[in-house]
Simulated scan of single mutants.
Amino acid sequence: MGISKMDIVGRISYNCDILFRVIEIKEGKNGKVAILYGEDFRLVADAPYEDLVQIDQKERLKKSQQFRSLEEQSLQLFRQDLHLLQEKHEYESTGGYAKTYNYFQIPGKVLHLDGDPVYLNKCLALYERIGIPVTGVHCNEKEMPSKIGQLLDYYRPDILVITGHDAYTKSKGDINDLNAYRHSKHFGLTVREARRKISSLDQLVIFAGACQSHFESLIQAGANFASSPSRVNIHALDPVYIVAKISFTPFMERINVWDVLRNTLTGEKGLGGIETRGILRTGMPKNSGPDHTLS
């Protein structure tokens, strides 16, 4: 049986190191070519049809369990970080007194633009587990620059995530040539358009990029955090861990970049950024209502 659209495959020439979804199969000069999206990495790739092999359910489950284990480890580390943040903030908010003050917290609101609807849903599920107010919008990477202004006006987020799929292709140019990247140029244009609306790096915190994205151009465009300094693949959920740290850090505190990166699945090779102010605000008294805490 042949390989079809939406099948899960591996590339024989790469020893099936990454699982991909087949998004499209088209005729090329030398035969059929498949467009592939990474299952766990925000990577897009082209591959000859003959280089693909379908991955059976057993192997898929094995690789999936490995990633789920890493995701749970990152989530557990984040929970520990958040608990320490809350303890510190509670002590400072109450002046260290024994009396329990009845206060509430408002984490930063997120607008998450994603070029992949499957990844978007995975991220939204994690935002919900963590307790971050979020709006998710599926948008083709090429259409993001023209749509971001209207979306910012409508949703008015504190944090903007611009992500999807990307890839650097050596045969298309030097590592500094934006034309050698699948979507870095579109991500960069989207950041610039967002900064036309809100120029302050603290008023709107921006994460931009995907696998192998042109990190330097995204930071220069105005992103606070971006991928990928070493042009490596980033995990599908890495943007959420970065956003969560920012969202739950009090607005009077500045975030050390390493503190943001250390609990991601990719680390500093795939993610980087600049010193940024937190978003969380505290008020009192607290009335009965939803409590934004980890489940």
Rank of each mutant, 00 (worst) to 15 (best):
A34F: 07
E50H: 15
D166Q: 10
L160M: 06
Y181K: 03
G173C: 10
A210H: 03
Q80R: 15
N102P: 00
E24S: 05
L151G: 04
V134W: 11
T163G: 11
V257R: 07
V44F: 07
D51A: 12
D7K: 06
H292W: 15
N30R: 09
K109I: 00
F20E: 01
E128H: 13
I23T: 06
A194F: 08
I242K: 03
E24P: 00
E87V: 07
G188E: 08
I8T: 13
S171H: 12
N140A: 07
I175F: 15
G222R: 13
P239A: 03
Q66D: 10
T190L: 04
L43K: 03
Y14E: 09
G2W: 13
G136C: 12
K197I: 04
D56C: 07
S69V: 04
Q65C: 02
E193A: 15
F104T: 01
Y91R: 13
N224K: 09
G173P: 10
G270I: 02
I55T: 05
H165W: 09
D7T: 02
Q80G: 06
D46P: 03
A167S: 11
E268M: 11
R195F: 14
L294H: 09
I246F: 13
K109W: 10
F67G: 00
L84H: 14
K286M: 04
G131N: 11
G149L: 13
L120C: 05
I25C: 07
L178A: 11
